[in-house]
């Protein structure tokens, strides 16, 4: 018995695939932006905050990094719903991904902040910069520039990992494929198409991060070396 490939049946569902792709991209974009904000803030707390705040951030980071994303998403999405808060599932999914990536971002940015030499802070202090100015101009910018490649990898990973959210009912790219499978029974073709789509997405997202890096970090653009 030979298997007859029929990609036509799958590709016929292109509007669903497109919609799923856009959803995946949107989830990645929002959780990237919020994740960086949370990560930068928590990293600041972890390197210079009061002890009690460091403990809270430490617990958050360790808890998230040592439990599966699927379980986190389950509790966040259905937990919020059970508290009587009716949020669209995509908002819940964004919160779940943000909470997850925020923890990883915290650790990466913390490493970046700790790489800033103490002399830099003294120089800023002696020039009269305030604490906030020093943090914004002397610490966080070069810290982010230094760990940018690691951050970009983490966010591509997040985009790929977001496929797991289909298990809690989010109709991102992988979730859409479930619908196509149950309509067509063409599992093999669906996975081939999905694999290719994720590959393209990852390449595009990586390229996006590279371009963003060049825009954000002029030193990198001009010298082409890492800080």
């Amino acid at each position: 018995m030979t298997y007859e490939f029929d990609f036509g049946a799958v590709l016929g569902y292109w509007p669903l695939l497109l919609q799923g792709t856009l959803t995946t991209l949107r989830l990645t974009l929002f959780s990237t932006v919020f994740g960086i904000l949370i990560g930068a803030f928590c990293a600041l707390v972890k390197t210079g905050g009061p002890q009690w705040a460091r403990t809270i951030v430490g617990l958050y980071v360790e808890f998230i990094r040592n439990t599966p994303l699927l379980i986190q998403s389950y509790f966040l999405i259905f937990g919020i719903a059970s508290m009587g808060l009716r949020l669209p599932i995509l908002v819940g999914a964004t919160i779940a991904l943000t909470v997850n990536i925020g923890a990883y971002t915290t650790e990466i940015v913390r490493a970046g902040i700790e790489s800033i030499h103490r002399g830099q802070l003294e120089a800023a202090e002696c020039l009269g910069l305030s604490k906030v100015q020093t943090y914004l101009h002397i610490i966080i910018r070069p810290a982010l520039e230094r760990v940018y490649p690691a951050l970009a990898s983490q966010y591509v990973l997040l985009m790929l990992a977001s496929s797991i959210l289909s298990s809690v009912g989010v109709e991102e790219l992988f979730g859409m494929s479930n619908r196509i499978q149950s309509d067509t029974f063409r599992n093999f073709e669906v996975f081939v198409v999905l694999g290719i789509l994720y590959l393209i997405l990852a390449v595009v997202v990586r390229a996006g991060f590279s371009l963003l890096g060049l825009a954000l970090f002029p030193r990198r653009r001009k010298l082409g070396t890492s800080l």
């Binding site: 002399g119 830099q120 120089a123 002696c126 101009h137 910018r141 070069p142 030193r219 800080l227």
Partner: peptide, 15 residues
């Protein structure tokens, strides 16, 4: 008061 250090302490990410 201005101060100059032995290790320069220029900001590496700025021109």
């Amino acid at each position: 008061v201005g101060i100059v250090f032995q290790s320069y302490n220029l900001f590496p990410h700025l021109t």
